[in-house]
Amino acid sequence: MSISPEEVAKVARLARLDLSQDTIGQYAAQLDGILDYMDKLSELDTSSVEPMYTPVDQVSVMRDDVVKKDYARADILKNAPETDGAFFIVPRIV
């Protein structure tokens, strides 16, 4: 499979990245080479193979539903670019 500059631009939009025209062209060429290399996997017949998403075969771990307060709101907000002292502030949405 090959990837066109238009597809790179589309994927960049999905990934919330703003790439310059130059970068789009450069990535398209590089990703083309990388995807070409990845197409090697199609040589293998995996029709009957169960996919493996993690090395640890364990089901979801359950715990008691208990309220815990580990962190103070003021400490969490210290890392935020903009707050009103109680909430995260973002540009107007509606």
């Binding site: 499979m1 990837i3 790439l19 996997l41 995996t46 493996m52």
Partner: peptide
């Protein structure tokens, strides 16, 4: 950014089976 683009691509509709699902099978 290059890896985010590549990752978003292999997970995107139409390419998920050919790349991500396939890779998870080969992983096993």
């Amino acid at each position: 950014q290059r890896r985010i683009i590549l990752g978003t691509y292999v997970l995107s509709s139409g390419y998920y089976d050919a790349y991500y699902h396939k890779a998870a099978q080969v992983r096993r």
